[in-house]
Design a protein around this nucleic acid. Structure first.
Lengths: 294, 294
DNA sequence: TAACATTACGTTAGCCGTAACGATA
DNA sequence: TATCGTTACGGCTAACGTAATGTTA
């Protein structure tokens, strides 16, 4: 058994070419490195260097040894990385969602029902959500349709209706509802981080209709500073988000309505039963929103 | 970077189940092992064990870690093995031969022409000789036919004629030469370690004809203690080996004559030029042997 | 009480840095 | 003289063993 500090020093020398440079990289003295290299040769019972007065270089065996040493160090590092990441995965619930809103809604419940666990959430595409569930890089996922996969347990837990908030003075402002078709001539502000809603709007409208903002801050500022229309939703309205000087009108198309499903692998269902139970009674439809015009 | 002595101790524990047993295996004290395991956890920043009063076992992360630790140690051992064997291969000329006699003949030349190198010789089958040349586990090989492979250089360097040494009183003893056919009713002593000659005789005669001795000592003793016929060769006869009370008669079949070729990869030919040159002038046909009956 | 793990403490092996020396360009 | 490697010496870290303590079956 040869200790890794020797291999590390050896590989550093192999890459630097001189003991002096390598000792600098390693933050040790040259004599120390010189001794280590001697020790390595002694432990292997093999000559690794070609030495002549104040010159040292790898011999043929040394080059072979350097390659194997790199591999051995690689295996060591791999162990460290995998063990740490495995340990972390045991203490963490990874959750992926097709949209940000249901995550905000779910977070407090998760924190409460999964004590001692870190909750790690991210927005991802439908494809990534499903494959992530299957390969266990997500323990939970929020989907906007039931994939109809027997190995995946799905429970409806939230509804969301897309609205458009439009200037009071605009012709459409008087309508009870609109369709995407009605919006063809508008330029509409949209937060770029709303998951699948971005895809829906890109599909139902043309790129020219959408003023997509990559940050929520930029989005908010433009809402304040302009009278441009913006996408809104029943959930935001229910939470009292009424952008000033606009009326919020639901979009009638089916595509503008989402049902969110909380899902996990059937095999892990019981681990998260408490979460599913807590969300079941809590279903928020977000219908019947009043327009609070400010 | 985690030092291998920690991994070694960790794996020992994983295999023994208790610190006490593992410390015994490792020839260290329990407290030392206990400390090491704590240190390993600390360096990884991860809990590896399930501890309760005077009981310790791997937790889930620990089992994963043990598997990775085994791999890391494996990579280390692999490095040691490969480096040592590579170094050895640089100082050694490995030679394979289809028969023992040409090796004996070649050995002094090799020792002289390859100064500082260890010569390692073995008898092997034709198939193994060729594949060994190609994959460089043999640098030189002695074949009894030219394989006609462009990548292999071949030089004729020795002839050998198979003889039978038979009791003076036997009917065949008066013949100038015999054939395998003539030997069908004999039981003939044969050294079992004469490479391809064993195959030749097994093919030309039946198993019942051959009294094959696995050791040369046993063979010699039976030659002395009996008047049984035995296989002999021009090379042995040339060296003065005349078994008592027998006449040696050449076997006329083509199969009873061998031409030996010294070979190496064409790409390595110049390394061994000196050997090829030394053997070229030295060709021994071994013909015209006189029968010295004692 | 036997088996096992942990804690406490003193010892020592071995790794490191500084200093001095040797060789080359 | 500047650069680079090796040898010599002394210091200090840290791994080790012994002894003592604590817990369970």
């Amino acid at each position: 058994m040869i200790e890794n500090y020797l291999l590390e020093q050896f590989v550093a020398f192999a890459e630097c070419g001189t003991l002096l440079k390598a000792s600098g990289e390693l933050h040790i003295s040259q004599p120390s490195l010189s001794r280590s290299m001697k020790k390595l040769e002694e432990e292997l019972g093999v000559s690794l260097f070609h030495r002549e007065n104040s010159k040292i270089s790898l011999n043929e065996t040394g080059m072979v040894a350097a390659e194997y040493a790199r591999r051995a160090l690689g295996a060591n590092q791999e162990m460290i990385d995998h063990v740490i990441s495995f340990d972390r995965s045991l203490r963490t619930v990874f959750i992926g969602s097709c949209a940000p809103l249901p995550i905000n809604d779910l977070m407090p419940t998760l924190q409460e029902r999964m004590p001692g666990k870190t909750i790690s959430a991210e927005i991802a595409s439908d494809i990534k959500l499903l494959s992530g569930l299957r390969n266990r890089s997500y323990q939970l996922a929020i989907l906007h349709e039931d994939p109809g996969d027997k190995s995946i347990f799905c429970q409806r837990f939230m509804e969301e209706q897309l609205y458009i908030s439009i200037d009071i003075g605009h012709a459409l402002a008087k309508e009870k509802s609109v369709s995407f078709e009605d919006l063809k001539d508008l330029r509409i502000l949209m937060d770029g981080n709303v998951g699948f809603w971005n895809d829906v709007c890109r599909e139902m409208l043309s790129p020219d209709n959408l003023l997509i903002q990559s940050s929520f801050d930029a989005f908010s500022e433009l809402v304040q500073a302009s009278r441009l229309p913006l996408f809104n939703s029943s959930q935001f309205l229910a939470r009292g988000y009424h952008p000033s000087g606009r009326v919020s009108i639901p979009i009638a198309d089916n595509e503008a309505h989402a049902t969110y499903y909380l899902s996990c692998l059937v095999s892990e269902q019981k681990k998260y039963r408490s979460v599913f139970n807590a969300t079941r009674g809590n279903l928020i439809t977000g219908s019947h929103i009043q327009n609070n015009i400010q």
